[in-house]
């Protein structure tokens, strides 16, 4: 597998955009320096959000003509960090600042069986993989889970293209994805140790699959996933960060990340991936009023439960329904010397 992890910036023009599903826009970009985007790649865009330059990552759904046309699928997130709202406002002809394809979710070769699991908009990371597996003649299953058919992008197209290999689960039809049986079925199959799963979706779904995967003692490296740190246990809320050593408190709006808010407030913090993977921006937690919605994949589950630390780039404080009676926003006190 070719893995391009190099990030370089270029301009791209919006060639087309239209609606894929309720709240999901299809955006076709034509970059200045086209490079074919392999399955699993994403591009980063630098967006101007409320006067701040923010980087946002979007999976490449389709790469055509050697990368001259790159298709993205963008869902308008109700608790958007601002990126999706901006993306939904793009018009044909607009110019965006973008990277070339970046690969951190490569599709392997040679597995006996592949299971692709898409939760909601996570399908955008898996469409190209499914097409490639079909072309290869590989044994694969594409699992699509969503709240309702109206919001599930590419649903009809995928069913038409992949036929019996697609399994559809829709919450509002009461046909729900049962993670235990999905993973149990893999564990019981002859190809268990040589089955690879690729998943992209809400963090709660991915956490459940990760737990089931571990319970069945399936090989950890065969479970592949990608997250841009954009979903959590609860919807994003406004909250407050207290920094006693700096004698400051910073308010984090529901559209902003804690890291963005701290940087906007002039606090100098170290970070790298900005999507909850690397752990560089991990800081100690001194106190919490409410709950921590970690949203990262760096801390282990036991580490998350201790509330001892969090990753600034994706973690949030939340009332999370527990303190629904309280009018005060949730708060977290951090050790930031």
């Amino acid at each position: 597998m070719a893995v391009n992890t190099q990030t370089w910036w270029q301009q791209g023009r919006v060639a087309e955009c239209d609606d894929l599903a309720d709240g999901v826009r299809r955006i076709v970009l034509t970059p200045d320096r086209p490079v074919h985007a392999a399955p699993g790649t994403h591009i980063d865009l630098r967006l101007d959000l409320d006067g701040h330059r923010r980087k946002r990552s979007y999976s490449v759904v389709r790469s055509e003509d050697g990368g001259r046309r790159l298709t993205l699928g963008v869902q308008l997130a109700p608790s958007s960090r601002g990126g999706s709202r901006h993306m939904h406002g793009l018009q044909a002809g607009d110019v965006v600042e973008m990277t070339g394809p970046v690969q951190s979710f490569p599709l392997g070769v040679g597995a006996d069986r592949y299971v692709l699991v898409a939760g909601g908009i996570g399908i955008t990371a898996l469409v190209a993989m499914a097409d490639t597996l079909r072309r290869r003649g590989a044994d694969y299953t594409l699992v699509l889970a969503g709240r309702s058919r109206r919001v599930m992008a590419y649903l009809d197209h995928l069913v038409e293209t992949h036929g019996d290999r697609v399994r559809v689960f829709v919450d509002d039809e009461d046909v729900r994805l049962d993670v235990a049986s999905l993973v149990g079925e893999i564990a019981d199959s002859a190809a268990a140790a040589r089955t690879e799963m690729y998943m992209c979706g809400p963090i709660r779904l991915m956490d459940a699959i990760r737990r089931a995967w571990a319970t069945h003692e399936l090989p950890g490296p065969n479970l592949r996933f990608e997250t841009f740190g954009s979903s959590g246990a609860w919807a994003a809320e406004d909250f407050v960060v207290h920094l006693p050593q700096l004698d400051r408190s910073v308010r984090v709006g529901k559209d902003s990340s804690m890291l963005d808010a701290l940087e906007d407030a002039g606090v100098d913090v170290m970070w790298d991936c900005r999507k909850g993977e690397c752990g560089i921006c991990q800081v100690k937690v001194l106190d919490v009023d409410g709950r921590i919605d970690h949203r990262d994949v760096f801390l282990s589950q036991p580490q998350k439960e201790t509330y001892a630390s969090l990753c600034l780039c994706v973690a949030r404080a939340a009332r999370g329904g527990s303190g629904s009676g309280s009018a005060d926003p949730a708060a977290v006190t951090l050790h930031l010397p």
Binding site: M1, T5, S104, F105, G220, C273, S300, P302
Partner: peptide, 15 residues
């Protein structure tokens, strides 16, 4: 020095 593995930690493998 960490309990998890960064999901993007892959090096290319060739046929």
């Amino acid at each position: 020095a960490q309990e998890t593995i960064n999901p993007s930690a892959v090096v290319p493998s060739y046929p």
